[in-house]
Design a protein around this nucleic acid. Sequence first.
DNA 1: CTGAAAGCGCTAACAT
DNA 2: ATGTTAGCGCTTTCAG
Lengths: 342, 342
Amino acid sequence: MKKSITIVDIAKEAGVSVSTVSRVLTGKVKVNEEKRRIVQAVIDKYNFQPNAMARGLINSKSNLIGILTADIRNPYYSTLIVSCEQAATERGYNLLLCNSFSDRLNEFSLLDRLSQQKVDAMILIGGAPDEVETDKEYAEKINALLEETPVIITGNLNGTNCKRVNIDENRAMQLIMDYILSLDGIKSVAFAGGSRRYISNVTLRDCYKNMLEKKGLKYIPEFDVENERYDEIGGREAMDKILSNGKVPDVVIAVNDFTAVGILKSIHEHNLRVPEDISVVSFDDTYIASLVTPQLTSVGYNYWEFGEKIISTAIKLIDKREVPEEIFIEPKLIIRNSCKTE
Amino acid sequence: MKKSITIVDIAKEAGVSVSTVSRVLTGKVKVNEEKRRIVQAVIDKYNFQPNAMARGLINSKSNLIGILTADIRNPYYSTLIVSCEQAATERGYNLLLCNSFSDRLNEFSLLDRLSQQKVDAMILIGGAPDEVETDKEYAEKINALLEETPVIITGNLNGTNCKRVNIDENRAMQLIMDYILSLDGIKSVAFAGGSRRYISNVTLRDCYKNMLEKKGLKYIPEFDVENERYDEIGGREAMDKILSNGKVPDVVIAVNDFTAVGILKSIHEHNLRVPEDISVVSFDDTYIASLVTPQLTSVGYNYWEFGEKIISTAIKLIDKREVPEEIFIEPKLIIRNSCKTE
DNA sequence: CTGAAAGCGCTAACAT
DNA sequence: ATGTTAGCGCTTTCAG
């Protein structure tokens, strides 16, 4: 590997001083047009890329945004991260990606690494910020970080004042409920999957219960089944449990698309049909929703907007501009074929 | 945001020189045990993280590996990238993630950004390296990059000498063929989806054709249907075409799991059943394979090994050690329920 | 408008 | 074993 070309080499070849080269590079100070042309020509000739580390050292700015997520294999996360990456790229930032696999120790050491890289901001998606009970040590860690670096989260992190970008869960549940109850002959609504250990799930379940009562339907505890796993297996387990006492709900709300897939399978195995016997709705509208048969009616979000809001909040914070404590993302219902409509 | 603490602050508080602090930080040179303890205590007290940019500037090493991929939302890529991230983290490297969305212009500018960040190595997964006809300009770009930075690819990039880590496509097709032909009553085998524009697909199709003939089966052109889209829609289109002339193959090989999903749907819409009427096999064994009904028999890879090989190749190159031109990943067949076995 | 020089935070000779 | 110092590549005063 050759040693890479530097601003000094460019200056030499262009016959100017390094500061002049620097000036044409940054473009902030006027340079004689003729000189500018010559310098630019040399830059282009070598496709010279100024060393970001040297630049960063001077402005205390790495142009890096660290993003810590639970597991990028989950389509919800990967979709969100692609949006973030896009928004960041457009604004001249690069993304440093870390997966914690929801392991606390991992998260700690990854946070240290991000701060070692002097990322300009950190974004925490999933993992600890999702939990209802913020672990004290974690909050302290984040607070220490906040002294030096803006931290944006999805979820909430009690005891810290990270800025938050979140889905309006209440609105999401409301969209689902309004839709469900607009269908004919709905008497019972089940909610399958998810755990009250996670903040968003508490919001969802509370809203589910409230709306049920407001609409004059009975809340049936056996139809409200939690499950720690947010995947297909979790969905199947939850649905098996719901159907285990012989009663069949008219609709089941799945905590996410993966869970819905398990629910679909469980229903199938019980020799019932979707949507003829049971309707199914879910959250997130990942591509899974349109992959399965029947295609799922699901509450989705504008992921581009979601990622954009996260990144623009981060950059505002980097630029020391004001941002609201919490920004909400508006959900929207995507109607497909998993609910009985006639 | 407070200005972050530096090695000078640590030195001052510990009552030693900066070099001593640096020595305990790097651990390469012996330091008096007593002093080491004191310094370490101060470091711990502030959870001091040495500035990676300053370090990098000195050793010309960023500890960053750039990874350029087509689209991380595709589970094949996200699974591979998670493995890379894991392997990189274990070895003290961080991943800079970029998505090109297979857009050539995008790839170009992202490559420049990675070289601006002075990443220690670049990994190219999907996009240009996958294509049979390497675009000349692209190859030149990569060759220029190679002067300064190791580049590892998945695929092949004619006219460059990037090191390659690839799936053994021939072996993969062989596994499928051997399995298929071990089943009873298989007379005709279709291949659906994928395009000969991509190198791996050429390998696959050639192997498909050869093995067919070697096993004494006829190669039927109408059963070999390409499709540019590697998704569900592409699969449906391809399968519709296969079935359009009235003949029904005994098995259809799908170019990947997504395509297989479309194939499943098309078969269903033609009032045929899988696996009773038609068997289906696919490549990649992403989680999609076990999500759909019936679960897909699919050729998979050890993604952890795949990512590990990519990263260890990168790091060997960074350390100027020898590596083979190409490393192959051994595929393995995962048998599920999409083939008629009795 | 331009060049010389200082300095960002750190490491690695070089002295001691 | 430890402190002093040069210098990594760049930007930004500061003079001129």
